[in-house]
Structure formats: C-alpha cells, structure tokens
Simulated scan of single mutants.
Amino acid sequence: MILPRPTISLSTDASTQEGWVNSATRVLGQEATALNEVSKALHAELKTPFTTAVALIAKSTGRVIVSGIGKSGHIGNKIAATLASTGTPAFFVHASEASHGDLGMITQEDVVIALSWSGDTQELSSLIAFTRRFKIPLIAITRSSTSALGSAADVALALPHVEEACPHGLAPTTSTIMQMAMGDALAITLLEARGFSAQDFKIFHPGGRLGANLMYVKEIMHTGSAMPLALMGTSMREAIVLMTQKGFGVLGITNNQGNLVGIITDGDLRRHISMNFLDKPVEDIMTRSPVTIKAETHLGTAIELLNSKAITSLFIVENNRPAGIIRLHDLLKVGAA
C-alpha cells in the first residue's frame, strides 16, 4: 500500500515563506549545536578514543573498511571516499552484503569502521563477529558505547546525545551530520599526520577543475621563442609588430642582462598614443615592475592573481629572467578557470 502524499500549501505569501525559512534555520541551528557538542567532546570524553582510532588507522598496513546500513551506510560511503582521496586507502562494504560473501574483502591487516546510531543494528552482527574472530581492529561510530557495537569495538567513538532536527525525532538528520563530521575529522587528522600535500592530493584528483587547479604553471606555460619579448631601446614601431606576431596582447621588456623590467599591454598603447608614438623607445611606454609568478605556482593561485589584478596574462620569472608566459585562455583550455 502506498500512503497518500501529505498536502502542502503552495501559497507563497510572506507568512508562508517566513515559516519555511524558520523551519530551515531551526534545522541548521540544531545541527550547528550538535557539531559544537562533538567539538567539545573531543577535548573531553572523546579525546582518548579519537586519538586511539587515529593511531590504529595510521599504523595499519592494510585498508580502512567502512560499513553501515541505511542512512549510516550512506554516510559511511562518503567517509570511505574522503579517506581514500586524502591518502588513507579505504572502501565501503555494505553491512547486509558483508554476510553474503563480502566479508572476504576484509583482511587481518585492515581496520574496520562501523557506523550505527543505535549501535544495535542486526545487519552488523556478522561483521562484528568476523572482526572479533580474526582480531581485526574495529572502530565504532555510534551513540552509545554500551550498545552491541560499542561494547564489541576496540574503540567506540560515542557521539553526544543531541535531538534530531526532525520534529518527530525520527528522520536521521543531526545524527548523520555528526557521523559525517567525525569521519571528516578522522580523514583530515590522518592527512595532516602523514604530511599529505596538495601535490599528493592531485594524484588522486587528476580530473575536473580540482585537478586542473593543482597543476603547476610550468606545465602549461609558453616558453622560448613563443614568449613575446623585446629589449629596452626597441622602438614602438617594432614592438607593435612583435606584439601582433606573438598574439598574447602583451610584450615583455628585458634589459641587457635578460631581466624582465616591464611590460607593454594593449592598455598601455591606448594610454600613450601620440603623434610621435611609434618612434618612442619601449621603456617610455612600458609598465614597470610587472606582476609575475614562479613556475612552481599552482594554476588555482594563478587564476586568483589574474582575477584580483584584472589582467589576462602573466609572465613566469626565475631569477628575474622571463621563463614563460601564461594567459587566461590557457587556463580555460585545461579547465582550471
């Protein structure tokens, strides 16, 4: 039997909107309170269990197996993904599937994290028994350390008792937020303990904008003869020809030592146009002390600099000498902007 869907008023008058917003802010407020309680607990009753859990995972030579069912299972899936992407090998095993053969995925070198808010979820019994039989470390994320899961675990991360945001106290809301936050806390603590760097992060995130932002400028910059460069003393007549040939809309100016001492942009051309403009040397027109970056700069940082300075090209310098150039178009091509 399918229950009829409750009728919802579709009125969009001010009082209805205010009621909806009040419901939303009440939920967010309760969940924020719950996270604050978890934070307090980490400095008190959760301090020893949490640090013990981090140590267990850190010294493991295997993987972290995360398991749960229902909403806790969904949260467990996300925790496993976060651990795996931050340097801790992990995957999710569904609690029900575990008792139908998936226990074979777990080895004695692994660590198991089991999630259950009540701690008495029947579907976890096979997993609990398996870890106890083969002495596989078991970390529980639950509400009660005296529940079946909590009492069986080597480490019980017993989260604070906070009411669900659901007005009936039934739909997992506050509880799942706390479980997810605890998973994030474990993952990032392990990341920092291992010294997991942004470049390490890139290895596991090669695709999309995130991967592109973690690329280095040196990986996409234009170098050598492709760079638009001219020596001080060059006439603007020659400079304009060079700018047109190179197609970057900018020209770098170097001194006799090869140091980058200025740039000429399309804006500089417009600002200095005059009757004898073409006969002037480039140093009379150039913008001195141009904005530059290093070759080891991440593309994400380069984008921020381009946006903050409202410019479209950047020279890369090493020891004050131009080593390359990038433009906003290059960042768009690799998906970083």
Rank of each mutant, 00 (worst) to 15 (best):
G62S: 03
F277M: 14
L56Q: 07
T173F: 07
H272L: 05
S67D: 08
H168Q: 12
T297P: 00
I8C: 00
F277Q: 13
M232A: 15
R143D: 01
G150R: 07
L28E: 03
H94S: 10
H329W: 07
D268N: 11
K78N: 10
I273K: 05
T287C: 05
L251T: 03
D284C: 12
I311W: 05
Q179H: 09
H205Y: 03
A80S: 15
T176F: 04
G169S: 04
N259S: 11
T86L: 10
T52F: 03
S289L: 08
T51S: 13
F91P: 08
A185N: 08
E296S: 07
K59E: 12
D284G: 13
E318N: 14
L138H: 11
V66N: 03
E18P: 00
V162F: 00
M215I: 09
L251Q: 09
P322G: 02
E97R: 11
V334G: 02
E45P: 00
A114Y: 06
T86H: 05
A98H: 08
T142M: 05
T301M: 04
I79W: 11
G104R: 09
A226E: 15
I303H: 11
A81N: 06
G335P: 03
L157A: 02
D154A: 01
G104V: 06
G68W: 13
P49C: 08
E296M: 03
G73R: 10
S99E: 13
R5F: 10
A187M: 04
T189F: 10
I273E: 13
F277C: 12
A80P: 03
I139Q: 04
F134P: 12
I2H: 15
S67T: 12
M243H: 04
L115Y: 13
S175T: 06
A337D: 10
A323E: 14
F277P: 11
G233S: 15
D266Q: 13
L214V: 02
H298C: 00
T146R: 08
I65Y: 12
M286D: 08
H205M: 02
T189Y: 07
T7G: 00
D266V: 14
S23Y: 15
